[in-house]
């Protein structure tokens, strides 16, 4: 970013930029500040305190929900990274594979499908199959949603890689699998990492699909928070939200750094 461009901005631009950022981030900043509130009441400031963070770390049910969420997110992001990468490979490299256009259209469908519909249809599927709803049903549901994001990210990276790189590796003595591992995989690794991060974040955030597909005893953190809030907002929620914001920010920053690294290596841009 050039400082010169900032210097050239008019006062109007500066004000509108400030207002825009304030609209987006002020609520979050207030929430983080209030998470350090000593007061019992959410809306009244009572001085700085780590009281609600302590309360959260002593709240067994809430901690269990957080642990479930992290496990679901980690497992579904990993599954999504593997499946999404395979799907991207099929789409970019599978020139001879017949239903490519259909498949690529279907891949984008979950991106635009309202979550309620995805959640409901998965619920119907699990009920029809007689699957016991819990950790695995949520994980599978999140995987189906997030693998599309991974596939889209990896696909664009893969498309920008010169096909003759793999041919060169084969020419120099690698079998097809070895050529993929030695050349293609290192080049798309940053995109896969970015996809994983995004999948992790999406899974951690999701309330709608999780609430359709979860069962007793495996409530995720957003479900838990939502049910608490319905009974009235406790300041403890602020502390949890602040922690989640921290985690998500970290994940997004890492993902975009990975994507940047990926595009710098290969010359062409990856999304994000």
């Amino acid at each position: 970013m050039s400082g010169r461009r900032f210097a050239a901005m008019s006062r109007f631009n500066v004000v509108s930029l400030a207002l825009g950022f304030a609209f987006l981030y002020l609520p979050i900043v207030i929430l983080v500040i209030y998470s350090f509130n000593a007061s019992q009441l959410v809306t009244v400031w009572g001085g700085w305190s780590l009281r609600w963070y302590t309360a959260f770390f002593n709240d067994e049910a809430m901690l269990a929900a957080a642990a479930t969420s992290l496990r679901v997110a980690a497992v579904s992001a990993t599954l999504a990274a593997v499946l999404g990468t395979l799907a991207a490979l099929a789409l970019v490299r599978g020139e001879r594979f017949k239903g490519r256009t259909l498949f690529s259209g279907m891949l984008y469908a979950p991106l635009v499908m309202p979550e309620v519909i995805t959640g409901l249809s998965l619920l119907l599927l699990f009920v029809a199959l007689g699957a016991e709803r819990g950790f695995w049903t949520v994980t599978i549901a999140h995987t189906t949603l997030t693998m599309c994001f991974v596939a889209v990210i990896v696909q664009s990276r893969l498309g920008s890689i010169d096909r003759s790189l793999e041919e060169a590796a084969m020419d120099l003595g690698c079998g097809p699998v070895k050529a993929f591992v030695a050349v293609t995989l290192p080049l798309i690794a940053p995109a896969i990492a970015a996809g994983w991060m995004l999948a992790f974040t999406l899974s951690l955030d999701d309330l709608v699909i999780a609430s359709f597909t979860t069962g007793p005893g495996s409530a995720t953190l957003p479900i838990r928070i939502y049910s608490e809030v319905r009974l009235g907002v406790k300041p403890e929620i602020n502390a949890i939200c602040a922690l989640i914001i921290g985690a998500v920010t970290l994940a997004i920053v890492t993902a975009s750094l990975a994507a940047k690294l990926s595009s710098r290596r290969g010359g062409n841009a990856a999304p994000m």
């Binding site: 041919e167 590796a169 120099l172 690698c174 050349v183 290192p186």
Partner: peptide, 18 residues
């Protein structure tokens, strides 16, 4: 290709960027 005692220099050079 990986079994042939033949090597190729590609038009794009195909150097491994990593």
């Amino acid at each position: 290709p990986h079994r042939r005692p033949v090597n190729m220099m590609f038009q794009s050079y195909a150097l491994f960027p990593h």
